[in-house]
Amino acid sequence: MTVFLFRRLLQAVFVLLLTSVIVFVGVYAIGDPLEILLPSDATVAERAQVARDLNLDAPLPMQYLTFLGSALSGDFGRSFVYNRPALDVIFERLPATLELTFTALILSLLIGLPLGLWAGTRPKTLVDETVMTGSILGFSLPNFWQGMMLVMIFAVWLGWLPSTGRGETGEILGIRTSFATWNGISHLILPAVNLALAQIALVIRLTRTGVQETMPLDFVKFARARGLSEWRILLVHVLKNILIPIVTVLGVEFGSLIAFAVVTETIFAWPGVGKLIIDSINALDRPIIVAYILVIVTMFIVINLVVDLLYSALDPRIRSRA
């Protein structure tokens, strides 16, 4: 296990280094932040002064080496727009995004697993066809369209839920969260459901397929011969065997939820890093863009490592090979 962790850490360092080069060159080769930061009537001397202050007058390789040296000490530069350390701005917004994505992930499990189990135990029935049709819609309908429909139905027509913002937050165990107030929960429901719809469809299909492949196996027949109830067989024996592919996919999808919550956060004006990166791209706020992408890549690496460790907990054979 120690060798496995060491190998993965080396891979992580290489991936982060390669990503930093690609992202830095790509971001810094596009556009000129001075055109956005300075008024059109700025003098040449003012432009030169701002360029020196932001280190934009140095050659690109020197800018990258300066960035890399600072990044190794935890400094990703100061935001051009907010005039604050880029990481501080990102970490200020990150809890809102994590709260939204965790809620979406929990919803996908709470809704997708039971529906997948239900459909898997009743193949080619009306229940199975209805659940699978719903999952196809969850995959097929564009995320932005689903979000607009949720706003129109539940916020505009029915007036049950607010459509924008994070709402009031409170503290639970020292952590500020929307779950501490009903106002915060009501603001969280629509964006979390919108973000979870595609994941619910994915969990339904994975669970249904796993159930249908596992139920004919010998260990299930042996469990029936021992007189175990169908629900015990399904929830204890079958579910444990189908969790590995579900954990695999959801681990990767959780990183995707964080990275691609941009659409949902934009529609619902959710103050997370997704909305921040859109605003930063519009303003060519390079330190924020580079820091954001490296933070997301790091989270992907950590999530994949956690998924690998969960493998070993669910299947001892994987632990012995590692």
Results as ranks from 00 to 15, higher is better:
residue 114 P to Y: 12
residue 22 I to A: 14
residue 74 G to Y: 10
residue 102 F to L: 15
residue 76 F to R: 08
residue 100 L to A: 06
residue 31 G to S: 09
residue 67 F to G: 03
residue 31 G to W: 00
residue 87 L to Q: 07
residue 44 V to L: 07
residue 58 A to V: 12
residue 102 F to T: 14
residue 70 S to G: 10
residue 114 P to H: 14
residue 110 L to H: 12
residue 89 V to H: 03
residue 55 N to T: 08
residue 33 P to F: 01
residue 93 R to I: 08
residue 17 L to F: 12
residue 97 T to V: 10
residue 80 F to C: 01
residue 74 G to Q: 09
residue 50 V to H: 00
residue 27 V to W: 03
residue 79 S to L: 08
residue 59 P to I: 01
residue 57 D to K: 04
residue 24 F to E: 01
residue 14 F to D: 00
residue 65 L to G: 07
residue 22 I to L: 13
residue 26 G to Y: 04
residue 53 D to Q: 12
residue 25 V to S: 08
residue 105 L to D: 08
residue 112 G to F: 05
residue 117 L to H: 05
residue 92 E to Y: 11
residue 46 E to N: 04
residue 25 V to L: 10
residue 58 A to I: 11
residue 39 P to W: 00
residue 40 S to D: 14
residue 17 L to D: 00
residue 93 R to K: 15
residue 21 V to S: 05
residue 93 R to C: 06
residue 54 L to P: 02
residue 77 G to S: 05
residue 86 A to D: 10
residue 70 S to N: 14
residue 99 E to S: 05
residue 26 G to L: 11
residue 24 F to K: 06
residue 68 L to A: 11
residue 63 Q to Y: 05
residue 81 V to W: 06
residue 108 S to W: 03
residue 48 A to Q: 12
residue 76 F to G: 01
residue 106 I to Y: 08
residue 44 V to F: 04
residue 47 R to F: 04
residue 72 L to E: 10
residue 86 A to Q: 05
residue 112 G to Y: 07
residue 79 S to N: 02
residue 38 L to Y: 06
residue 42 A to H: 01
residue 27 V to N: 02
residue 38 L to T: 03
residue 77 G to L: 07
residue 36 I to S: 12
residue 35 E to G: 06
residue 59 P to V: 06
residue 85 P to D: 07
residue 21 V to I: 13
residue 95 P to S: 15
